[in-house]
Structure formats: structure tokens, C-alpha cells
Design a protein around this nucleic acid. Structure first.
Lengths: 140, 140
DNA sequence: CTGGATCCCTTGGGATACTG
DNA sequence: CAGTATCCCAAGGGATCCAG
């Protein structure tokens, strides 16, 4: 338990896995994208409950504050999530999926399932063509 | 299976609807993308059977030969479709989905279903924010 | 008919630095 | 902590022209 029982009760939320979007993870090569590069990942980050700006930066490794900010604003604009600032010090802002945003989850699940089953084949086919392109002799 | 009297018997295939990706069609604003801008649409074009290069250009309005060619080569490289040139005159080439390529169809169906149900809400939310951004007074 | 070759422009998005 | 402000680059993709 990270904190007190006050606030929004996110205290029992498991911390986000820093590796959930690890570049080495096959699903990060998922050929399906929702809108832009980060939207799908943000949905994944928020499906367990509201998260704070900095909290999102952990699993979304490499995302710069600028880009994350842009992504979040676009998603808010599209009604996919809500932004809730608290008048405290230090400042605190929470992002949470709207019902509309939650409707994306099954799609992401489907995409993930597809990747787990078929992505290896796609990648294998790609490697074969790369081999040909590189002019290497067929493997004996 | 449609079989072939001559060639691949695409003769009984319904011609592709020129409007199937009309910019005005809601599904063309679909926020889900497969890989790049055109891949998903190409799959849709091919799900009914093999098609020729020029045939694909009809519904994919606005796509330049260069871009379509790049898309098709990338998809072939990834094992999503096959490219079959016929040694005739005038030249004829047919593109057809592979079994792997066909596995994308359910995903596209899911995305389309999502769009039909939820896209209007997303668009509505977007319009509200645009209105605010434009500084227009709230409509009475 | 089926593209390849060029040119070019927009845009996503990364790096870095700086505020309330 | 939660962003904003700049700068900048690579890449997607469109237009146009050309060739087998």
C-alpha cells in the first residue's frame, strides 16, 4: 500500500509494470494502432483505474512529456478520457477512461490476441524477405 | 469457390464499390489502423477475391501508384498477400490475401463494428471541443 | 497495364529546456 | 508534480513524370 486511504482510492491499484510496453515485448510490435502511436497504450495503462501524469510516463518508456501531453489532450477532446486536476500542492492531476474509452478495450484485446497467435508468422515472413534482399545465399 | 473457366474467374466478383472508402463514409474515419494508412483498406478490397493493381486504385481513391505499390510490397513482404504476375500483354498482376492476411478480417470487422456504434459519440465530443476552441459562444 | 523514379511537403514525434 | 515552449528530424505519403 503506497499511501493513505484518502483521495481516490487508487492506493490498492497495482503499480504499472514498467515492462508492459518493453520494446522487447512482441505486442509492442503489434501492427494495429489506435489513432496514433500512444493512444492504445494509454488505454491499457488506464484500464485498471485512474492514473497520474507521471505514473503514465513509467510504462510508456521513451514518451516525452510533450507527446504524452498531446496524446492525452487529444483523447480528452475525443471523449476517451477525463482529466481531473486537484487544487493541491504539489499539483495532482488524474486521468481516467470514460465509458467510451473503455469500449476500446475489447478491440485492444482482440489485437493482442491476434499478435500472440499470428505475429510470429508475420515476422518470420518478413525475415525471409530481408534475407533475400540482403542477397544472402539460401541457407543450406 | 468460384472456380475458373479462364484465368482466375474474377469475372463474377462484384466490382468494388467506388464509395467503400469514400471520405464521407464514417468508417473511413475509423481510428483503428493496421500498420499504415492503407493496409486495412487493401485487406477489405481483397477479402472477396484476387484483384488487380488498377482495380485496387478505384475504391482507394486518392492513393497514388507509388504509395499503393509500397503498401502492396510491404504486405507481400509480411506474408499478408501474394503477388502473381501473368506473362501476358498487356501485363496483368493479381494480388490475393494469404491465410495469414485473412486473419486480419475479423479485426477489421471488430473495428468497423466499433465505429458504427461509437464513432458518432467520439466525433460529437470532438466537435464540442472544437466549438470551445473556436471561442464561439455556447449555442442558445 | 503495372508500376519505378523523383521531388517535396506535412506531420508525428523525439530532445532539451523552462515555468506555475 | 504537471506540464509548456522550441527546435528538429525522419518518414509517410502525395504529385508528377517516365518506362517496360
Amino acid at each position: 500500500m503506497t499511501d493513505a486511504t484518502d483521495r481516490t482510492d487508487r492506493s490498492r491499484l497495482a503499480p504499472l509494470d514498467p515492462d508492459m510496453f518493453d520494446p522487447l515485448c512482441p505486442s509492442s510490435e503489434m501492427p494495429f494502432r489506435v489513432g496514433d502511436k500512444w493512444t492504445g497504450m494509454v488505454v491499457r495503462c488506464l484500464e485498471g483505474g485512474p492514473r497520474r501524469f507521471t505514473e503514465l510516463r513509467v510504462p510508456l518508456r521513451g514518451v516525452t512529456p510533450k507527446v504524452l501531453s498531446e496524446t492525452l489532450r487529444a483523447m480528452e477532446r475525443d471523449g476517451l478520457l477525463t482529466r481531473t486536476p486537484y487544487d493541491e500542492n504539489p499539483p495532482r492531476v488524474e486521468y481516467a477512461l470514460t465509458p467510451l474509452g473503455r469500449t476500446l478495450i475489447p478491440l485492444l484485446d482482440a489485437a493482442r490476441a491476434w499478435s500472440e497467435i499470428h505475429l510470429p508468422h508475420l515476422l518470420a515472413a518478413r525475415r525471409v524477405h530481408e534475407r533475400h534482399a540482403s542477397g544472402a545465399a539460401p541457407v543450406a
